[in-house]
Structures are given as C-alpha cells and as structure tokens.
Write a protein that binds this DNA or RNA. Structure first.
Lengths: 162, 162
DNA sequence: GTCATTTCTATCGCGTTGCGATATTTTGTG
DNA sequence: CACAAAATATCGCAACGCGATAGAAATGAC
C-alpha cells in the first residue's frame, strides 16, 4: 500500500493564518524528549499488562484473544451475550476474523452459538458454564493486577509549552 | 444482571473461604456484572488505541512492532539508544524475537546497529535519520489520539461492596 | 411478488509474528 | 587455560488476523 504516505499529515499546513499559529503542526507542536519518554512509558505499561494477561491466561489453557472474547461477552453492556458483529466491534477485529476466533473457542467448549430468533442471518454467542467459570477466575486475577499497575497505566499528561 | 451467573459463586462456596469478608477492599471477592463491564470496557479502550496505532502506522509503511521499537529508542530514559536486551525488556519480548524485529527495521533503514565499545557481546541500537523523522510524525499523531481517548483508557475503579 | 442490493456470517490461502531450541561469540572466574 | 554464564542471532514452527471470496437471509424498488 502506498509508499511514503505523507498525504494527510501535510495537508494541515495549508492554513495560511498569519497571527495565530505559524508552526508546521497547528495544535501539534514538536515533541520533547520528555514527551517521547512519556509516550514510551505508557506503551511499556500496556505491554506489561498484556504480557501479564497472556502469561496468566495461557497458564489456564486459553489464548489471549480467547480471554478477551469471553470477557467481551460477560462484560457486554446490559446483556451477557453478543452477536458476531458486535463482538468484532468490541474486539476491534474484522467480522470474519471474529468468526474464526469464536469457532476455536467453541471447540474448547468455552462459548456457544445460538441462532437469533428475529434475524436468521445473525448468530448470538454466549458463554458455556466452563467458559463462565474460567472467565471468573481469570478476571479476578486481572482486576488485582490492574490495581497494582494503576500508575503505570495512566495516560501521560503533556507539560510541554515551554 | 441476570441471576444466571451462579457458576462462580458455587466455586467460591466449595473452597475453604471464610464467610462474607468484613474487610473492604482487601479480599478477592467475586466480580459483579459491573466489574466485568468495567474490565471489558478498559480492554476495549486498549484495543481501540492499538487499532488506531496500527492503522496510522501502517499507513506510513511501518508495522506496529516497528513503531514501538522506534518509540522505545527515542523514549528510552536518559539516552536515545538501547541494547537489544534493554529493548527486549521494554517491548516485553524474548531477546531473540527482539533481534529479529531489529533486523527487519534495519532493512528498512529505520534503525542502526552499533557495536558497544566496552562489551563486544553487546549491540547498541539507534535511530537513523529516516527513523527519527518518521517517529516524530507518528508520535505527534499518537499524542493527539491519546488526548482524545483519555477517559476511555482510564483504569476502572471498583465500586463493589455495594 | 420479483429481483437487485445490502447485511451478516463463514471458509480458504497467505504473510507476518513471536517462540522454543539451538548456535556463536565474548566475558568473567577459578 | 578450561569452563560456565551472558548477549545476540538463526532456524523451523504454529497461531493469528487479513484479503478475497462465498452463501444465505433480509431489505428495498418497482
């Protein structure tokens, strides 16, 4: 896809307003060393959390994606199930990738496919008993870990403008 | 809410756990529907941020891991370079996986390997001009996005015990 | 009603990624 | 000088997500 895409990031420069901002990046001044460190530290925090999650979850026979699938079901707003499309949105995956993930989880008796009564195209996905039990145990561990990593996972505040 | 989720409460009963914890916030009580939703919402936030990052970065010819590699270099505390082992720690990868990642980035002229003057086993990795330029542009976009997603990325607070 | 179009889910083949096992070189220790 | 430990790198492998594609069901136009 496209070589060096400089298209849309440069497009902002077309603003010829004299007084307000003469900077190349209007609301986007260059980053300081501190900014880079803050950005890197935050990403480091995410990586560490995901690493903890992966290790924990694999220790219980699940892949990271499977855990997230189960969590998305039990944690779905208002209900305890979701359609394939809804799950795709929540997992930020393409619908067909989500379908594959569901199939793999189904083979391990973690989730179940149920036809939608109103729309025959739609498939509802819900947790099995085994899936529910495993998820409960793993989620408790995650909650504890999240508590420990609260500061490491806080979004940086930019004290630039100096 | 659905009173269906009785699976985990059963599990708790069977274990030698003491009766309802009188101490708030110290034990590891079962999760409520709210807790699951909070956990899922947080993971959803992370996924959305990483999805934004991946799309943005790929639009500029990089893989997500490559961006994180560049960021880890420029954002490394106190210096602008790091050894392979240090990068492995920051990226939460095995050292040999990190070496492969570096090799790929090197082929795209994003980073450079420099021998360590003190220890001949050690390899220092630093940014090239092209890598630095690309990173600066991408990091600005990430900072802006992080600002927009601040609330979505905040670690949940557990108001259970209610 | 009929047909075209859109929506929702699923299958297949592929490229990328990170890992385990293993190897190579260098450092430090006796 | 062996000899173990450390740092980096190579190879084969399996898992994951995607693009392309497909099919079934719902929706809309006429």
């Amino acid at each position: 896809m496209t070589g060096v895409g400089s298209s849309w990031s440069d497009a902002v420069v077309t603003t010829e307003g004299p007084p307000p901002a003469a900077d190349p990046a209007e609301a986007d001044p260059a980053l300081t060393k501190q900014d880079f460190e803050a950005l890197a530290r935050f990403r480091f925090g995410i990586r560490r959390y995901l690493r903890f999650s992966e290790d924990t979850v694999r220790g219980h026979g699940l892949s990271p994606q499977q855990y997230q699938l189960l969590l998305a079901l039990k944690g779905f707003p208002l209900r305890d199930w979701a359609t394939v499309g809804e799950l795709a949105e929540r997992l930020q995956l393409r619908p067909h990738s989500t379908a594959e993930l569901i199939t793999r989880a189904q083979k391990q008796d973690l989730v179940r496919r149920v036809p939608d009564p109103d729309d025959a195209r739609v498939v509802r996905v819900e947790l099995t008993g085994a899936g529910e039990e495993l998820l409960a145990r793993l989620s408790r561990l995650h909650r504890t870990q999240l508590e420990h990593m609260r500061t490491a996972l806080s979004v940086p505040i930019w004290h630039d403008e100096m």
